[in-house]
Design a protein around this nucleic acid. Structure first.
Lengths: 197, 197
DNA sequence: GAGGACATACCAAACGTTTAGTATTATTGC
DNA sequence: GCAATAATACTAAACGTTTGGTATGTCCTC
């Protein structure tokens, strides 16, 4: 039932998904949905919590015990897999935008999720710096913001134009240039390290 | 009237904006809107056309006659200004996502706009390569895709969290690393060019 | 006084929500 | 062990409201 709601919300948005439509698609009736959830907003809130938990778990599990540089590659790959999967990948992005001016509770939830994601990435970069995998003169927060932008933007473009937009190219190119800029190569010194992929 | 429609659509989405609401906000009544537009979809289509034209004009005008590297910096800045402005900046992104499964005509329009934007960027990179500003062994299409991702993702994060997300940091960091990677410095050779900003 | 630019009044459909009722399953008392 | 009770998981129908859309009236300009 949550899966069906996520599917409808991700396709048609919250306002565009009627309870009747969700119910019919789930093979039940409206009344049944109102038995489990107080109202439409409650259904949305439950769906959001469910999808956030899944997303966070997937990301954290994917780079467990990996080196910082490999983790950065891995996360991009996980997001790419997610975007190309069939389980309502647009849900979080759809609601991130739709709820800004329509549902403060959901908006706050998603906002803090995104902050957590950026914090997680920044921690990864900081770890890489401490292990001297990455050069120390880059700001981890800036990297995290730029990285998240790249992933988010690639997802949207892929959703909108899966035939023409190659997510692998976009994210691959970004991660490559990012890792090169993070590798301990100073721009004012000679290059000491040839591996950049 | 188009401005009011754009404002409502960008805040509440197409499904979430009632004609009555748009009319009241524009200081007219429903009847007046239906005098100028056939139906709600027609109003949306007109608004989309208007916003697309404004966006394309703004981008192209901003980097008229600029060198390729400066143009890349400029476009990011223009997108940043647009995101921080007050004239319904979320409109295009909101509809890009909402219309995927709900309005093929609008979706096609936005899709081809995004393709045009990427093509424009790729042309810019190619121009930079021909003028030997940029190294020749990067794929302009990949750069364009990654660049667009960064801009789009930064916009979304800013809309969702203007207090905590610093667009200037995210885009600044991306453009810096991109331009370094585009500068004619080979990774398998010595560095010849110290300027990276 | 005719036509353009609205406002007003209204309709049918769809919407979120509530209610009354019904099978099915679990729990209890004897 | 089994009937009585109660909780669970629904359905079908109805309610009031909102919606997109239309038909008609009114003003104001040329």
């Amino acid at each position: 039932m949550l899966a069906t709601a996520a599917d409808c919300f991700s396709r048609y948005g919250y306002a565009g998904s009627s309870i009747d439509r969700i119910a019919r698609k789930a093979g039940v009736t409206k009344g049944s949905i109102y038995y489990h959830f107080r109202d439409k907003e409650d259904l949305l809130a439950a769906t959001v919590l469910d999808r956030i938990a899944e997303f966070e778990q997937r990301v954290q599990a994917s780079c467990d015990g990996l080196a910082a540089d490999e983790a950065l590659r891995r996360i991009a790959h996980v997001c790419q897999d997610h975007a190309m999967s069939k389980d309502h990948p647009r849900f979080l992005i759809m609601l991130m935008i739709e709820s800004i001016d329509t549902n403060q509770q959901v908006s706050d939830q998603l906002r803090s999720t995104m902050r957590g994601f950026r914090r997680f990435l920044a921690g990864l970069v900081r770890r890489g710096q401490q292990q001297e995998l990455f050069r120390a003169d880059v700001d981890p927060e800036r990297v995290a913001s730029a990285y998240t932008s790249a992933v988010l933007g690639a997802e949207i473009q892929y959703y909108q134009d899966p035939d023409s937009f190659c997510m692998d190219d976009a994210l691959g190119h970004y991660i490559d240039t990012l890792l090169v800029s993070l590798n301990g190569v100073r721009t004012d010194s000679l290059q000491e390290n040839g591996e950049n992929r």
